[in-house]
Nucleic acid binder design. Structure first.
Length: 427
DNA sequence: TCTGGGGTCCTCGGGCCC
DNA sequence: TCTGGGGCCCGAGGACCC
């Protein structure tokens, strides 16, 4: 006997203000206050040291977190340095402070906001916890980062009841019981619509969207709400007077292809009509791993050679460590630079063998570095390793680094620009 | 006083081989 | 030998996402 095919139900689950909510659990005294997350540990440490000397009645260790008096938390006004806001609480957003905003600008808008350093280790711990709850109830889950997932409800018990609302409520309760955190869930015929739906009722909401809801609920939304339409595409659409998804849907498919290319144009048209057949992917392998760092001040290859060289080595070591702990090897090694004017250049080089040792990564990345203009000040330096495979799968993988020439030092800017025909530094 | 870090995927152009 | 095209890989850059 063949069962009648069930209608596809896909959920998008998004944790509400994830980082800020985790911090509010750790520091309940901050609940409801304007708070931003973003800077390094230094500032908080300074304040805690002051606390330890002024209030010695406690040890002020991890366990005392919840008792730290408000006066001893760093404020945005205390901060002077580079960086952006990762998350802002709703109380902080009222002042116009938001994600990706520079900390200095935010400090002007809301100097009294508490500034906490991001603790990714802790966020990952909570991330694993809420995903374990989901997997216990609905095993077809796609990981989309630390705070969101897609879940295929189609064949899960209760996944079809009330369009998915029954299972969504169970997930919300399970996650709240296990972690103390709330989330928003959208359930729809596919990932594209589910993603939009999860935003409808934030925080703590559930939105059920059916195919018949496309016109009344999706089409009035701005194009930017489509996951995949970013600021550039949105601006180009607006140049043609296309602001809403409905207006995009009204566009002729051929016209979109003419203006946005075959792949992008086709996708825009399908997205506007709510069409998306992408499956929920339960397992994926990383393609690349990278580390990058923005310097406290812009550095020059000659004047700051030692500092840059040390940072470069550290990045290579970090990437190597990441590869090794994940059991990966790669053979495409590259660098990324951001100049003081924010222009980004990348150089990569693919080598014959798969590697994961810091020495080789540093060496090949050093060769990439010789092919860029080093006469200008650098704001950011990054090291990347791509074309990853499992170390176990590479029959010939030799964990010993190749014993060839000595480590290339950070190249001088005065050095010849090299033989790279694409190098522009000599022109 | 601007603008993080870690990713993915796509496009385009060039070189190479058949 | 020359020319042309297709397929593939590589490298650079861009758009986008969390």
């Amino acid at each position: 006997m063949i069962d009648a095919p069930l209608p596809r139900r896909v959920a998008h689950l998004d944790m509400d203000a994830f980082y800020a909510s985790v911090e509010s659990l750790r520091y309940p005294q901050l609940k409801g206050l304007p708070m931003v997350i973003g800077a390094g540990w230094g500032l908080l440490e300074t304040h805690l040291q002051r606390l330890r000397s002024e209030r010695p009645e406690r040890a002020w260790t991890e366990a005392d977190r919840a008792h730290i008096p408000l006066d001893y938390f760093p404020r945005l006004a205390d901060y002077a340095g580079r960086g952006v806001i990762t998350t802002a609480t709703y109380a902080a957003r009222k002042f116009g402070v938001g994600s990706a905003m520079g900390l200095m600008k935010a400090a002007r808008l809301c100097p009294q906001a508490i500034l906490l350093p991001a603790d990714f280790k802790e966020y990952r711990r909570y991330s694993h916890a809420f995903k374990r709850v989901i997997l216990g109830m609905a095993p077809v889950m796609e990981d989309r980062g630390v705070d969101e997932v897609y879940i295929d409800f189609t064949h899960v018990p209760a996944g079809q009841q009330q369009g998915g609302a029954v299972l969504a409520r169970r997930l919300q309760k399970g996650i709240l019981d296990a972690t103390g955190l709330t989330c928003s869930i959208g359930v729809a015929p596919n990932k594209l619509i589910a993603k939009m739906a999860s935003e409808f009722n934030k925080p703590g909401g559930i939105s059920i969207v059916r195919e018949s809801d496309l016109q009344p609920r999706i089409w009035p939304l701005p194009c930017r709400k489509i996951n995949g339409i970013g600021p550039k595409t949105d601006a180009r659409l607006q140049e043609h007077g296309i602001r809403t998804i409905g207006e995009l849907a009204a566009c002729d498919g051929a016209w979109l292809i003419e203006h946005f290319g075959p792949a992008h144009g086709t996708w825009l048209h399908e997205a506007a009509w709510g069409l998306d057949e992408r499956p929920v992917i339960t397992h994926s392998e990383p393609v690349s791993m990278s580390r990058e760092t923005t310097f406290e001040r812009d550095l020059h290859a000659v004047a700051d050679r030692a500092e840059l060289g040390a940072a470069f080595t550290e990045l290579a070591e970090q990437v190597a460590g990441d590869l090794q702990s994940g059991g990966y090897v790669g053979r495409t090694i590259g660098i990324k630079l951001r100049y003081a004017d924010f222009r980004i250049v990348t150089r990569v080089q693919t080598i014959a063998h798969f590697v994961n040792d810091a020495h080789t990564i540093r060496q090949v990345a050093g060769q990439c570095l010789r092919r860029v203009d080093l006469s200008r000040r650098l704001r950011l330096l990054g090291v990347r390793v791509g074309s990853l495979v499992h170390a176990d799968d590479v029959a010939a993988f030799d964990p010993k680094p190749p014993q060839n020439e000595s480590l290339a030092l950070f190249p001088d800017a005065e050095e010849s620009p090299g033989r790279d025909p694409q190098s522009t530094s000599a022109e």
